[in-house]
Nucleic acid binder design. Sequence first.
DNA 1: GATGAATGAGCTTTCATTCAT
DNA 2: AATGAATGAAAGCTCATTCAT
Lengths: 206, 206, 206, 206
Amino acid sequence: MKANQNQFAPRKVPQQERALFTVDSILTAARTIIEQKGYEAASTNHVADVAGVSIGSLYQYFPSKEAIVAALVEDAVLKAGERTRKFLIERMDAPLAAGIREIVGHLLEVRREYGLIFRRLAREVPRFRSISGQLTTEKYLYNTIHAFYRQHRDEILVEDLETAMFVLEHLVVGAIDAYLDNDAPILNDAELVQQVSDAVIKYLTK
Amino acid sequence: MKANQNQFAPRKVPQQERALFTVDSILTAARTIIEQKGYEAASTNHVADVAGVSIGSLYQYFPSKEAIVAALVEDAVLKAGERTRKFLIERMDAPLAAGIREIVGHLLEVRREYGLIFRRLAREVPRFRSISGQLTTEKYLYNTIHAFYRQHRDEILVEDLETAMFVLEHLVVGAIDAYLDNDAPILNDAELVQQVSDAVIKYLTK
Amino acid sequence: MKANQNQFAPRKVPQQERALFTVDSILTAARTIIEQKGYEAASTNHVADVAGVSIGSLYQYFPSKEAIVAALVEDAVLKAGERTRKFLIERMDAPLAAGIREIVGHLLEVRREYGLIFRRLAREVPRFRSISGQLTTEKYLYNTIHAFYRQHRDEILVEDLETAMFVLEHLVVGAIDAYLDNDAPILNDAELVQQVSDAVIKYLTK
Amino acid sequence: MKANQNQFAPRKVPQQERALFTVDSILTAARTIIEQKGYEAASTNHVADVAGVSIGSLYQYFPSKEAIVAALVEDAVLKAGERTRKFLIERMDAPLAAGIREIVGHLLEVRREYGLIFRRLAREVPRFRSISGQLTTEKYLYNTIHAFYRQHRDEILVEDLETAMFVLEHLVVGAIDAYLDNDAPILNDAELVQQVSDAVIKYLTK
DNA sequence: GATGAATGAGCTTTCATTCAT
DNA sequence: AATGAATGAAAGCTCATTCAT
């Protein structure tokens, strides 16, 4: 069971269907507004409006504006984490090079799909950088990817796998995010995945 | 003569010494506040307060809040750019591996020193990402680093240098920024430089 | 269904009784302040204060300061227009001279009662001159008074009735407003009406 | 000697040529700005700027913003008054009807030329309405026009000349100002003068 | 005398949050 | 549970005015 006492925790756990629907409307509205007009445009009143819910109701389920965003982040982190974990587990026995290419491709997909959370929110609102940052690594990458690398320990030439993993993660994610942020990129998805994978593979094996 | 007509241009050029001091106080105060509490906390009134200057004075020299930040960004980009250009020119004849290690080390230094601008502001305020982003690459990295790589064209095995440079830039900067953002990293400066340089060198030469 | 999309349109329609009261307090306060101290003195904060309402409430119902004034103007124009139309219709069959005297008397009354709008606001705020000006003539004077004059076409000696009506309207209203503006007039209501009516009757019939 | 002690009196009487020039620049700048952009746009700093004078100098010659406008008003009233007085004196012996037509024509000219002061400023800034209003009548119309009417006392049928003059003045000026304010009037200068004069003549003589 | 740097009260407006119904 | 009216601190910014140089 997760601790529900902290400042971002939802106020009450909805127990009726209607309440569930309300919560969902609010989260969807918030996500939509942030995606389309940015964090600053997502005033609580506006969110409630778009959600078709009274501002009073919004505050019945979320103690603050940040709680809404935190819920958005947590949701994204959980889903993205789960997907990545599953993906990694399925590729656990793939050859190193092919596996890495697939993983990089998968990360590109996930960062694109959850771009709002991982790239936009995390940047605009410093408070959430730590949340999503920590969650990112710890929850959905670390353990599983570690397992994958150990699977290929004999092919990998770097000594300190911990350090390498830290560097790698940010190397890869940094390049992907920059690529996604770039309005007029000089390469496409396939090329990016190709180049980044190459870098990773060379880094680990040569 | 630079065009001074744009929306972020300073409102008037200080003509007395105390005016210069005022402008400086404002910029320093803004930088400090943004560094310590983030962009949102840097309200014009607060900046004026910390600068020990009336709000009226602030608006005599800056037409808007954004103009203050723009001045901060421009200043940082110029200084960092100049420093990096000089640094690169001096290393132009260094051997590839040593040169890359030094460049990565230099970038770490610069990103740390101008962290406020390059990592914090650029992320929190999307408007400034484009400014600093473009300036970053174009003004102080691209031409000079391109020259350095061409110097070693025969050692470099990648075919498309343009693409490689794009990937490399973000790979390196992504890793450095993540390292600097991380409160309790598992490695230190030297190790980071070592690992990142290794990755770059292997990527280019193997 | 009136178009509610324009910039002066009220922000939301009050749905509870106390909201109606709030809106009313705001309008009354604005009217009072403008009457007593002029448009410039009617700052939104001051209006809210006098209305005994928070500034936030004021902005829930009016999107801007001008919207408040626009509501005041619209209200006055509508009411005054309706009253004048009714008045004119009732006198439609009165003899020319008597009718004109009554109409001038009525105009004096209306301009006095809605002095704030028609004399003060329209003058102080050029933006509203057009609004109230147009509405004034077109909506509540033109058609009906035209009908009245046509009723007496044979007694009226001027050739171009259109032109005469334009001149007349401003002649009459100009004199009435100057009279009302004047702090120490040398004549009273009855004398003014008498003289102005005389001028109109002579102008039309001799 | 005029009382110089009141709140709108210029601070000091300029005694050097340079000072005279400064005062003039300020007044001209103020007039220009008000004419082109309205009273609200005429901030003291802006006026000083346009006048090519420092804000400090401006306040050396005018104790407040209102003093500038008051000087503008006084100047216009004096000049317009003098012109009208001269004009009237020259027509003193003209036949009544012709004289009235000429006077109305002259008033149209003057109101047009000093439109800024008499129509715009007086309306936008209530404080000045009383000033210009009083000055208007007392200084440049009353005595002289009274003389003209007395010249034709036998042709004039109204009993109370005082009252008639009050009514007439505002009748005429009201119609003229409305005509000048009107963007798309249905008549032209000549027709306006014709109709208004007719009304005056009929009013006085029939 | 002249300059222009400095001031700060006050303006319009927003928005997270509370609370009576 | 839900509504939406109400709140008010705080934001960005202007401008008449003062005063040190």
